[in-house]
Protein backbone atom coordinates (compact mmCIF):
# COMPACT_ATOMS: atom_id res chain seq x y z
CA UNK A 1 0.00 0.00 0.00
CA UNK A 2 1.27 3.47 -0.86
CA UNK A 3 0.96 6.43 1.47
CA UNK A 4 1.45 10.04 0.46
CA UNK A 5 2.89 12.09 3.31
CA UNK A 6 2.34 15.84 3.27
CA UNK A 7 4.86 17.34 5.65
CA UNK A 8 4.26 20.90 6.80
CA UNK A 9 7.26 23.31 6.91
CA UNK A 10 7.19 23.48 10.70
CA UNK A 11 8.01 19.81 11.22
CA UNK A 12 10.08 19.10 8.14
CA UNK A 13 13.34 19.18 10.11
CA UNK A 14 12.22 16.44 12.49
CA UNK A 15 13.42 12.86 11.83
CA UNK A 16 9.84 11.79 11.12
CA UNK A 17 10.53 8.73 9.02
CA UNK A 18 13.25 7.37 11.29
CA UNK A 19 11.10 7.78 14.38
CA UNK A 20 8.07 6.12 12.76
CA UNK A 21 10.22 3.19 11.65
CA UNK A 22 11.64 2.78 15.15
CA UNK A 23 8.21 3.01 16.73
CA UNK A 24 6.28 0.72 14.36
CA UNK A 25 9.17 -1.52 13.28
CA UNK A 26 7.57 -1.42 9.82
CA UNK A 27 9.80 -1.97 6.81
CA UNK A 28 9.02 0.53 4.12
CA UNK A 29 10.44 1.98 0.94
CA UNK A 30 10.64 5.66 0.15
CA UNK A 31 9.49 5.79 -3.45
CA UNK A 32 9.61 9.49 -4.04
CA UNK A 33 10.47 12.52 -1.92
CA UNK A 34 10.49 16.20 -2.71
CA UNK A 35 11.19 18.64 0.07
CA UNK A 36 11.68 22.37 -0.38
CA UNK A 37 11.39 25.55 1.63
CA UNK A 38 7.61 25.50 1.65
CA UNK A 39 6.62 21.87 2.15
CA UNK A 40 7.47 18.24 1.74
CA UNK A 41 5.86 15.44 -0.20
CA UNK A 42 6.95 11.86 0.38
CA UNK A 43 5.49 8.66 -1.03
CA UNK A 44 6.19 5.47 0.90
CA UNK A 45 5.29 1.86 0.27
CA UNK A 46 4.23 -0.11 3.36
CA UNK A 47 3.01 -3.69 3.66
CA UNK A 48 -0.81 -3.80 4.05
CA UNK A 49 -0.70 -5.24 7.60
CA UNK A 50 1.40 -2.34 8.91
CA UNK A 51 -0.31 0.32 6.86
CA UNK A 52 -2.84 1.63 9.38
CA UNK A 53 -0.31 1.62 12.20
CA UNK A 54 2.21 3.58 10.15
CA UNK A 55 -0.50 6.00 9.02
CA UNK A 56 -1.53 6.72 12.62
CA UNK A 57 2.10 7.10 13.72
CA UNK A 58 2.70 9.78 11.08
CA UNK A 59 -0.57 11.52 11.88
CA UNK A 60 0.38 11.76 15.58
CA UNK A 61 3.49 13.63 14.44
CA UNK A 62 1.39 16.14 12.52
CA UNK A 63 1.83 14.66 9.04
CA UNK A 64 -1.16 14.69 6.72
CA UNK A 65 -1.37 11.17 5.29
CA UNK A 66 -3.30 10.14 2.18
CA UNK A 67 -3.67 6.53 1.09
CA UNK A 68 -2.93 6.31 -2.62
CA UNK A 69 -5.54 3.76 -3.54
CA UNK A 70 -6.08 5.01 -7.07
CA UNK A 71 -3.23 7.45 -7.61
CA UNK A 72 -3.59 7.82 -11.36
CA UNK A 73 -6.81 7.81 -13.34
CA UNK A 74 -7.36 7.49 -17.04
CA UNK A 75 -10.05 8.99 -19.21
CA UNK A 76 -11.21 5.96 -21.18
CA UNK A 77 -12.74 8.18 -23.86
CA UNK A 78 -9.45 9.96 -24.51
CA UNK A 79 -7.08 6.98 -24.33
CA UNK A 80 -6.23 5.51 -27.74
CA UNK A 81 -4.04 2.75 -26.24
CA UNK A 82 -0.90 4.06 -27.90
CA UNK A 83 1.41 3.09 -25.04
CA UNK A 84 3.42 6.31 -24.68
CA UNK A 85 2.99 5.86 -20.91
CA UNK A 86 4.33 2.29 -20.80
CA UNK A 87 8.09 2.78 -21.07
CA UNK A 88 8.32 6.10 -19.21
CA UNK A 89 6.78 4.91 -15.94
CA UNK A 90 9.52 4.20 -13.39
CA UNK A 91 7.36 1.63 -11.55
CA UNK A 92 5.82 -0.13 -14.58
CA UNK A 93 2.26 0.89 -13.76
CA UNK A 94 1.12 0.44 -17.36
CA UNK A 95 1.34 -2.58 -19.61
CA UNK A 96 -0.31 -3.97 -22.73
CA UNK A 97 -2.90 -6.68 -22.63
CA UNK A 98 -3.73 -7.71 -26.16
CA UNK A 99 -2.57 -4.21 -27.20
CA UNK A 100 -4.92 -2.42 -24.81
CA UNK A 101 -3.12 -0.35 -22.19
CA UNK A 102 -4.02 -1.58 -18.72
CA UNK A 103 -2.97 0.12 -15.50
CA UNK A 104 -1.99 -1.38 -12.19
CA UNK A 105 -2.64 1.79 -10.22
CA UNK A 106 -1.23 0.29 -7.05
CA UNK A 107 2.26 0.67 -8.47
CA UNK A 108 1.93 4.41 -9.14
CA UNK A 109 4.09 6.78 -7.09
CA UNK A 110 2.56 9.91 -8.60
CA UNK A 111 5.72 11.16 -10.27
CA UNK A 112 3.64 12.62 -13.09
CA UNK A 113 5.86 11.45 -15.97
CA UNK A 114 2.91 9.75 -17.69
CA UNK A 115 0.66 12.78 -17.32
CA UNK A 116 3.06 14.94 -19.32
CA UNK A 117 3.96 12.08 -21.63
CA UNK A 118 0.40 11.18 -22.65
CA UNK A 119 -0.22 12.71 -26.09
CA UNK A 120 -3.99 12.44 -25.64
CA UNK A 121 -3.97 14.11 -22.19
CA UNK A 122 -5.90 11.10 -20.89
CA UNK A 123 -4.08 10.71 -17.54
CA UNK A 124 -4.46 12.65 -14.32
CA UNK A 125 -3.14 12.28 -10.78
CA UNK A 126 -5.59 12.32 -7.90
CA UNK A 127 -5.44 12.87 -4.11
CA UNK A 128 -2.57 15.30 -4.24
Amino acid sequence: MKLMLHVAPGIVRQPLIASVILETEALFNIERASIDAASGEIVIEVSPDKCQEVKRAFERRGVHVVMLENPVVRDEEECVHCGACVSICPTKTFRFENWRVVADSGKCIQCGACVAGCPQRALRLVLK
Binding site: H81, G83, A84, V86, S87, W99
Partner: peptide
Protein backbone atom coordinates in the same frame (compact mmCIF):
# COMPACT_ATOMS: atom_id res chain seq x y z
CA UNK B 1 12.17 -0.75 -22.30
CA UNK B 2 10.36 0.08 -25.55
CA UNK B 3 6.83 1.32 -26.07
CA UNK B 4 4.92 2.64 -29.06
CA UNK B 5 3.44 6.08 -29.68
CA UNK B 6 1.09 4.90 -32.38
CA UNK B 7 -1.78 2.64 -31.37
CA UNK B 8 -1.58 -0.95 -32.55
CA UNK B 9 -4.97 -1.50 -30.91
CA UNK B 10 -6.54 1.09 -33.22
Amino acid sequence: PASPLSSFFM
